[in-house]
Simulated scan of single mutants.
Amino acid sequence: MPVKVVAFVAKSNTGKTTLLEQVIRELKNRGYKVGAIKHDAHRFDIDHPGKDSHRLTVAGADTMLITSPEKLALIKKHEATPPLEELVATYFSDVDIVLTEGFKMSSLPKIEVHRQERSPTLLCRGEHHDPMLVAVASDEALNLDVPILDLNDIYGVADFVEATFLK
C-alpha cells in the first residue's frame, strides 16, 4: 500500500479510541493528512430510520452517498468485509497515513495499547507472538523486544508514529 497504515490494537476498554483521538489531533497539528478506519466485528448502522438516506437504502440502493459542502458519507452493501488494502486504495489515497482501530489479526504494523489495570497480558506478545508489533503504548514498564511508549505521553506516541512511518 502506498499510503502508510498502522493498526492500534488492544483488548476492549483499554483506551484505543482515546489514544487515537489524541494522536490524530497531534499529527494534524504537525501538518499531516490523517485517515482513520474503525474495525467493527459486529453489525453497525450509521443511517437512521426516517432520514432520506435511510429511506433510499431501505428501498434497495446498493450504494448510497450523502454529501454536503463539508463532508460525505457512503453506505455500500457488501457480502463480506472488503480487504483493508482495497479500502485504503479506494478511499484514502489523499492522506499521508491511515490509523486503524482494530484489525488485530491483520498483517499491518501494530502498536498495542496496554493498560495495567485492564489486563496483565498483551495480545501481540502473549499466547500469540505477532511479528508485526512495532511498539507498545503502556502505562507500566515492560521488558519487550519492541519500544515501549508512555501511554500518557501523546507527543511521544505521535513522535514514534511520525519517525517510523512518515519520515
Score class of each variant (00 low, 15 high):
138 S>T: 05
139 D>G: 02
6 V>D: 07
20 L>G: 02
43 R>F: 14
161 V>F: 06
90 T>C: 03
119 S>G: 07
29 N>G: 10
149 L>H: 02
124 C>P: 01
22 Q>V: 01
11 K>W: 15
35 G>E: 02
66 I>P: 00
101 E>P: 02
53 S>W: 11
56 L>D: 07
42 H>A: 05
74 L>E: 10
92 F>M: 04
165 F>R: 05
58 V>A: 15
22 Q>C: 03
37 I>H: 01
162 E>G: 01
43 R>W: 13
100 T>S: 06
11 K>A: 10
52 D>V: 01
26 E>Q: 11
164 T>Y: 10
143 N>V: 11
158 A>E: 09
39 H>E: 09
90 T>S: 06
42 H>N: 05
148 I>C: 15
114 H>R: 03
164 T>R: 15
6 V>A: 10
71 K>S: 13
128 H>I: 14
101 E>Q: 09
43 R>M: 12
138 S>Q: 09
160 F>G: 08
38 K>H: 09
49 P>D: 07
45 D>P: 00
67 T>Y: 10
40 D>V: 13
113 V>E: 11
83 P>C: 13
106 S>T: 09
166 L>E: 11
104 K>F: 02
15 G>N: 07
47 D>N: 01
42 H>E: 04
46 I>H: 13
27 L>A: 01
75 I>G: 05
144 L>R: 08
145 D>E: 15
143 N>W: 04
136 V>W: 11
125 R>L: 11
167 K>P: 00
92 F>V: 04
12 S>D: 06
161 V>C: 06
10 A>N: 01
63 T>P: 00
142 L>D: 12
127 E>T: 07
18 T>I: 07
